[in-house]
Amino acid sequence: MSTITNQEQRVNVKALEPNCWKLIIDIETYLAQTSLDKKLRELIKMRTSQINKCAFCIDLHTKDAIKLGESERRIFALSVWEESPLFTDKERAVLQFTEEITEIAKHGVREATYQAVKKYFSDQEIAQIIISVNHMNFLNRIAVSTKMVHPS
């Protein structure tokens, strides 16, 4: 594995495709207005970004989660949430759902995972979670493919 030093961004999607970028931001603006808990949304963003190895998004959303009052301890434990007692059953259901959506080619979303999420969320909230996870996956793929790097 190589060390990243002085990495340059390949292209700036936001600058090159401002009309499309506005649509991307509109989705985020919509999701921010839903009833989904803001800290839960940041857990989704951080976990998706961990799976996708998106350093830019991990940095950004870790800062956002801390601003919302998320504990550093829980952030540190997020990559091993299955082994940590710091997460509620509701959060565990969402994190499993997040992982299966992000890695959908492995085995889709298992029925047990869907039913676990359904215990805590309405159909509309489940739709919003699906949109949240997929939106983060889309943003991760832009950041990773263009080599966006967070400031050091």
Results as ranks from 00 to 15, higher is better:
S2Q: 03
T5A: 01
Q7H: 03
R10I: 11
N12R: 04
P18R: 00
W21D: 11
I27G: 03
Y30D: 06
T34H: 01
T34Q: 02
S35V: 00
S35F: 00
D37S: 07
K39N: 06
K39T: 06
K39C: 01
R41T: 07
K45M: 02
M46D: 03
I51A: 02
K53H: 11
F56W: 09
C57H: 02
I58N: 06
I58C: 09
L60E: 09
K67I: 11
G69T: 08
G69Q: 06
E70A: 08
R73C: 00
I75W: 01
V80T: 14
S84V: 07
F87N: 13
L95E: 13
E99W: 07
E100C: 12
I101D: 09
E103P: 09
H107L: 02
A112L: 10
T113G: 12
T113V: 13
T113S: 14
K119W: 02
Y120L: 03
F121G: 10
F121T: 08
Q124F: 08
I126Y: 11
A127Y: 05
I129G: 10
I130G: 14
N134D: 05
N134G: 15
M136T: 13
L139D: 03
R141Q: 03
V144N: 00
V144H: 01
H150N: 14
S152I: 04
